[in-house]
C-alpha cells in the first residue's frame, strides 16, 4: 500500500490534494497535518512513501535533518503557493496547477513507487538476521547488548528494529515478545 503524508497549512489545498490522490488510485493511505508540530514523530510513525509539503513550511525546516532518520526512500513533493514554469519537475506542484497537470505529475510518482514496491513485497518476511535481532529484543536485551552479542554496531541494531516494526506492525517490546512466542522464535521458558 502506498502511504502519503501531506503537510500543508491550507485546509482547502489539503482536501484538494486528497481528492486528486483518491482519483488516481484507490487504497492510498493518506495522513494529513496542518502544521509542523510533531512532524518528526509523524514521519516516523507513518513511514510515508510520498511526503507532500508546502514550500512555505519546508523552507523554514531543515529537510535533510528531518528525513535523515528514515532509512526508506521518501519521495518529497513540494507545493508552491505561486505558479510554476511549464518545465517544472514532477516533484513540484503549484496550487495553480490544473487537474490534468496534477494527475500527470502525481500519477508518475505513484507509478514509480508501485514498481519499486512490487520488487520489495517479496521481502516483507523477516530476514534471518532480523529474526536474530528480534529474538534478542524479546529476551529483553538493550540495543548495546544486542550489538555486542551479534557483532554489529548499535546503529545497525536500530535500523533492524525499525524494519522489524515496519514489517510486523508491532512497536513495543512486550508486543514483539508476544509475536516471538506465537511464532516460536523464543519459548515461554526463555523469558521466565
Amino acid at each position: 500500500m502506498i502511504k502519503v503524508l501531506i503537510c500543508e497549512p491550507s485546509y482547502l489545498v489539503r482536501k484538494g490534494l486528497i481528492s486528486v490522490l483518491n482519483e488516481l488510485k484507490g487504497g492510498i493511505d493518506i495522513k494529513e497535518t496542518a502544521s509542523t508540530d510533531d512532524i518528526i514523530e509523524t514521519i516516523g510513525d507513518t513511514a510515508p512513501n510520498i511526503f507532500i509539503i508546502n514550500t512555505s513550511i519546508s523552507s523554514i525546516l531543515n529537510m535533510e535533518q528531518l528525513l535523515k532518520d528514515s532509512n526508506d526512500e521518501i519521495e518529497v513533493v513540494s507545493v508552491f503557493n505561486s505558479p510554476l514554469n511549464l518545465d517544472s519537475s514532477n516533484t513540484q506542484i503549484s496550487i495553480f496547477d490544473s487537474k490534468s497537470t496534477l494527475l500527470n505529475k502525481l500519477g508518475e510518482i505513484i507509478k514509480s513507487i508501485d514498481i519499486h514496491n512490487e520488487q520489495e513485497t517479496a521481502s516483507e518476511e523477516l530476514s534471518d538476521r532480523e529474526k536474530d535481532v528480534l529474538r534478542e529484543i524479546a529476551l529483553g536485551k538493550t540495543n548495546k547488548e544486542i550489538a555486542t552479542n551479534l557483532y554489529i554496531s548499535t546503529h545497525t541494531v536500530i535500523s533492524h528494529r525499525k524494519n522489524i516494526t515496519r514489517k510486523l506492525g508491532i512497536k513495543t517490546v512486550s508486543g514483539l515478545t508476544v509475536y516471538s512466542i506465537l511464532n516460536q522464535i523464543i519459548s515461554v521458558e526463555d523469558i521466565s
Binding site: L168, K171, G175, Y179
Partner: peptide, 15 residues
C-alpha cells in the same frame, strides 16, 4: 496508545 496498537495487530495478523 502503542501497546493497544500492537494488540490490535497481533489479533488481526498473527493469532
Amino acid at each position: 496508545e502503542e501497546k493497544l496498537f500492537d494488540l490490535k495487530n497481533i489479533l488481526i495478523k498473527y493469532l
